[in-house]
Design a protein around this nucleic acid. Structure first.
Lengths: 221, 221
DNA sequence: AGATTTCAAACGATCGTTTGAATTAAGCAT
DNA sequence: ATGCTTAATTCAAACGATCGTTTGAAATCT
C-alpha cells in the first residue's frame, strides 16, 4: 500500500547524505555528484526533488532544525515550566545544568556531529539557512537562558548585560565542538569516552553555575 | 620609473588578499582568479611564488600565526612574568581580564576578523594549517590559562579539570566571534560600537572571574 | 493511457594549473 | 656608461578536470 514508493526514499537518502556532508564540510567543498553517489541515487534527482544544490542545502538546514527542536524540546520546555516560580538559586542551577548538558551533547553524540559545523559556518556568511537554524536552535536557547539568568540576577531578561552573559555561557558549551580538535590536542587524547563526557558535563555545569554566583557589576550601579 | 611590483610586493599583495578571503570564506569557496584579481597580480603568480593555491593557504596561516603571536605576546608574556608569585585571587583576576580582552578583541578589531574563521574551520577538517595556528594561538592561550587557573584553584596546571575549565573559558571569548551573527540578532543590533565592546569586555571579564570564585568539585573530593 | 520518476549523457561555466613568450633586473666584459 | 648574456618574474592564453545543471529518452507507477 505504498502510495509513494521511491520518491520519498530518494529525498530521504539525499537528505541523509547531505546532512552528513554539509555537517562537516563547507558548501562549496561538497559536490552534487558526491552527494548523489553517497545517497545511491541519480545525479539529476537533486535538481528534480530540491531544485538544485542550494535547495537541498536549505532542506538539510530545515531537517537539522527540526531534529534539534525535537531534541531540545524536552529540556527547554521543562525548564520553561519551571523557572516561572523558581528562586534565583534554582535558576542558577538550571543554567549550569543546561550548559553542561549542551556541552557534553555537542561534544559527544550525533547531536553535535552536524549542528555546529553548519551553524558556525552560517555565522560567517549567513544565508537563508541561518534564519532557519537560529530560530530552531540558537534562538530558543538564547531566550530560555535570558529568562533564567534574568531571574537569577533579578533583572529583566532583555537587559543587555543579561544577553551578553547568556551568549558567553553558550560559548562555554559550543567551544567543546567548535574547538574540539584543539581540546583533543590540549588534553592529549584521541577521542572522548563516556567518562570524559560526564566529567566535562559536571565541570562545565559547575563553572557556569558559579559564574552567576556573584552579582554582576550592573547590580551595584 | 615604472614601478613594477617587485617579487616581494607580489607575495605580500597575494598574502593580504588571501588573508582577507580565507579569513571569511572557506578554502574551496575562494578561487585563485579572485585572489589574483584582488591582489592586482597575475594569476600565475600564485603557482610561481607559492607553488599553488594550497601553498598560499598555508603561507596565509603562517602569516596569521605570526601576527597573532605578536599581538598576544605582550599580554601573555606580561601575565607569564606575573603569575609565578601571584595569589589565587590575583590569578582569578588575570584570567577574567584575559578572557574579557580576548572577547572584545575577537569581536571588534582586525584581530578578530580573520582569525576565528580560519581557525574554527580548521577544527572541522584539520590540515597542516591547524598545527601552525594551534601552536601560535590556541596553544599559548591554553597554556597560560591552565597555569593561571591551576594557581587560582591550587591544583596542577595539567589537571584534566583545569584544562576543561580553561577550554570552557576560552569558549566564552571565542563565541563572540564564532557566534557574532547570532549575537547581533539576539541583541537586535546591526553592529557593535566601541561602547558595546567595552561593556562586553567588562561583563565577560567579571563572568569569567566569578566562575572561578567558588572552588570546583575536584577540590572537595 | 498518462503522469511521475529515474537514468546516462551532455552542456556551458569555472576551477587550479601549466605553458611559452614577453618583460624586467642583474652581472659582466668592453 | 654601453651592449650582451643570463636568470628571474610577469603575462595572456590555453589545458584538462570538475563543477551544477539540463536534456530527452527509458522506466515505473497510477
Amino acid at each position: 500500500m505504498t502510495t509513494r514508493p521511491s520518491t520519498q526514499e530518494t529525498r530521504e537518502r539525499l537528505l541523509a547524505a547531505a546532512l552528513e556532508a554539509f555537517g562537516q564540510r563547507d558548501y562549496d567543498a561538497v559536490s552534487t555528484r558526491e552527494l548523489a553517489t553517497a545517497a545511491g541515487v541519480n545525479l539529476a534527482a537533486i535538481s528534480y526533488h530540491f531544485g538544485g544544490k542550494h535547495g537541498l542545502y536549505l532542506a538539510t538546514a530545515r531537517l537539522l532544525g527540526e531534529r534539534m527542536r525535537a531534541l531540545l524540546h524536552e529540556d527547554l520546555s521543562w525548564i520553561r515550566s519551571t523557572y516561572a516560580d523558581a528562586s534565583p538559586e534554582e535558576c542558577r542551577r538550571l543554567v549550569g545544568d543546561l550548559i553542561g548538558r549542551l556541552a557534553s551533547r555537542l561534544l559527544g553524540d550525533e547531536f553535535g556531529r552536524h549542528v555546529p559545523g553548519l551553524i558556525i559556518r552560517e555565522q560567517g556568511r549567513p544565508t537563508e539557512a541561518f534564519e532557519i537554524l537560529y530560530e530552531t536552535l540558537f534562538g530558543p536557547v538564547h531566550h530560555v537562558l535570558g529568562e533564567l539568568i534574568g531571574r537569577a540576577r533579578n533583572r529583566p531578561a532583555d537587559d543587555d548585560e543579561i544577553r551578553v552573559i547568556a551568549h558567553a555561557l553558550i560559548g562555554q558549551a559550543v567551544i567543546f565542538r567548535a574547538g574540539r580538535t584543539a581540546l583533543l590536542r590540549y588534553m592529549d587524547r584521541e577521542g572522548f569516552d563516556e567518562g570524559d563526557l560526564v566529567h566535562i558535563r559536571r565541570v562545565v555545569a559547575a563553572l557556569a553555575e558559579s559564574a552567576l554566583a556573584t552579582p554582576g557589576e550592573g547590580a551595584q550601579r
